[in-house]
Design a protein around this nucleic acid. Structure first.
Lengths: 193, 193
DNA sequence: GTGGAATCGGAACCTGAGTTCCGATTCCGC
DNA sequence: GCGGAATCGGAACTCAGGTTCCGATTCCAC
């Protein structure tokens, strides 16, 4: 079934592919999905045609990068699980994820504009499961309110995502408020579905 | 200095202007700033040329609507000040503002993409002051943590804004969490700047 | 009712950005 | 080295969507 055979590419092709990915990562992080293919090509020191040979469409390039990002998020979650203190591990993960959002405009846009794609990708790279585990561990230790679900971590990231765009506000401050809302103690309302 | 004299417009012109605004409100709420001028014209049952006579540019039309929205937000804040219970009044305002975001894609985009414009407009229509008053009243009554500023209300709205785009998540749930983070009691961290 | 000024409508124009195409160039097995 | 196949580069094409233009139409003062 697999159409993508591992045919050996020519050396220059492989080199260019890497250059394109590196350039695209930079340009998309800066300009979001509005970034232009010409700019990517220019930064990769390559013609536009070359970009299109490696990625048939702008959307394809964008997705390739997005999958990368989710893998990185999954790695963050993995590392966070290593932290002994369960609360710290949730906080650390959220901080890293949010910082990543803040430095990458494209990531926020994926979260906002491609909800279904995002859910699928998070599932595939194990991020969904890792999120659940992070949450359950903290709840078992009694340091996280019981009515939080793993998917709430994604929701929180998404909501912090676009704060980076407005210089007046800081996602760090917002995250602090949200974190206090996640604690098990204190007067609390009942969360809506 | 004022160039905008109140010259009486012809009846059909005034009628068309209203139709265009009504149509634009609907189309922009649905499609955000990606909305197309042709669609606005079609919905207003008017030619594109007519739209452009009333609003010299797409941007101008967009801004006219945005100012409207901020006036409405200011009215919400005003009404919220009438509520006796200071905590309720903050909650009510946030709920109304967030609901407005959820039903209006363009509003979220203004918050995200035109930060400075937004800050200026909020100032002009009195929303900034009203927010400060809402916050201070609640703090004086001891029902809102002391380290919250009026501008945090805007930040919260902004962060809730784009949750509406992803159907998996609900801004109501997120707002519940945030509200618990705003309460004065319970274990709390120190907010970052 | 009539004249002319204001307004309308929408085809045509223009620009920007994604994509294609093909001659030039580079790589690699012999 | 040589030959040809894979790859490159970037000018040119395409298409979508904002904006303009001007003949047709509508309104209002007289």
């Amino acid at each position: 079934m697999s159409m993508t055979e591992e045919r050996p590419q020519r050396a220059d092709a492989r080199r260019n592919r890497e250059a394109i990915l590196r350039a695209a990562r930079h340009i998309f992080a800066k300009d979001g999905s509005q970034a232009q293919m010409d700019d990517v090509a220019k930064r990769a020191k390559v013609g536009v045609g070359t970009v299109y040979r490696h990625f048939p469409t702008k959307e394809a390039l964008f997705e390739a990068l997005a999958v990368d990002k989710f893998d990185r998020l999954a790695r963050f979650a993995d590392e966070a699980m290593e932290i002994e203190d369960p609360w710290d591990s949730v906080v650390t993960f959220l901080k890293q994820a949010a910082a990543m959002h803040a430095s990458d405009r494209a990531l926020s846009e994926v979260f906002r504009d491609h909800g279904d794609f995002m859910v699928g990708t998070a599932q595939d790279c194990g991020l969904t499961d890792l999120g659940d585990r992070l949450v359950q561990r903290a709840q078992a230790a009694g340091v996280l309110r019981k009515d939080i679900r793993g998917s709430d971590l994604g929701m929180i990231c998404c909501s912090l995502g676009d704060l980076g765009a407005v210089p007046v506000w800081s996602w760090e401050r917002m995250l602090d408020i949200v974190l206090d809302g996640l604690r098990p103690d204190g007067t609390q309302s009942e969360l809506s579905a």
